[in-house]
């Protein structure tokens, strides 16, 4: 009886020690789920989801505080990927957060720009170059099309232009089977 008790206590102590050691040794910093969600989000940092950037939204999704259908730039495909990852039900894009638009870049009308730097401060990815009282311009390759620069511009000199297909970005279409009338 005593031996059995001692043996069981011993095993419990050893296993407890191993578990305790493992919890320190293999501790995961941060929530790995947030990383995975963040990798799916389009990183436009546009804030249309209601969070200040893609990562905060990813954190909110992981914590169950936000729905997965709040990201218009990610579109339906993004929602499907999130649904797959999280094992949640697919939902159509929530209308209050916006609609899916074709990818576009901001363009500054150089004749109208007054060099006020407001758009530079608004740009989440530092894609606008310029200085006070000097013409601003957008680095098209870095622009995510988040539209955050549109509102602050006091002279409305920024417009969004849809990205057109070039030979380098052209995609082969999905083969469509034509159905002929019998």
């Amino acid at each position: 009886m005593i031996t059995a008790l001692l043996v069981m206590t011993g095993i419990a102590l050893v296993l407890g020690a191993v578990l305790g050691f493992a919890s320190i040794k293999f501790k995961v910093e941060g929530d790995p789920l947030v990383e995975k969600i963040d990798a799916i989000l389009p990183q436009t940092q546009c804030g249309q989801c209601g969070f200040p950037g893609c990562r905060p939204y990813a954190t909110a999704i992981a914590d169950g505080e936000a729905e997965i259908n709040q990201c218009p730039p990610g579109g339906e495909e993004g929602i499907r990927k999130l649904a797959d990852l999280l094992g949640r039900e697919f939902k159509p894009l929530s209308e209050e957060h916006g609609v899916e638009k074709p990818k576009s870049v901001a363009v500054i009308d150089e004749a109208t720009c007054i060099g006020c730097t407001l758009c530079i401060q608004a740009c989440p990815v530092d894609a606008i170059v310029g200085a006070a009282k000097q013409l601003h311009t957008i680095v098209a390759a870095e622009c995510t099309g988040c539209e955050l620069c549109l509102a602050p511009c006091p002279v409305d000199c920024i417009t969004m232009e849809a990205i057109t297909e070039t030979v380098d970005t052209w995609k082969w279409r999905y083969p469509v089977v034509e159905i002929k009338a019998a």
């Binding site: 963040d38 989000l41 389009p42 990183q43 436009t44 940092q45 950037g53 893609c54 990562r55 989440p124 990815v125 530092d126 894609a127 390759a141 870095e142 995510t144 970005t169 995609k171």
Partner: peptide, 19 residues
């Protein structure tokens, strides 16, 4: 095209975090 998008979104993430 997905790889291109991934690359640009990774770039945007880095730039956002740096900002």
């Amino acid at each position: 095209s997905r790889e291109r998008e991934k690359e640009s979104s990774d770039g945007a993430r880095d730039r956002f975090e740096f900002k």
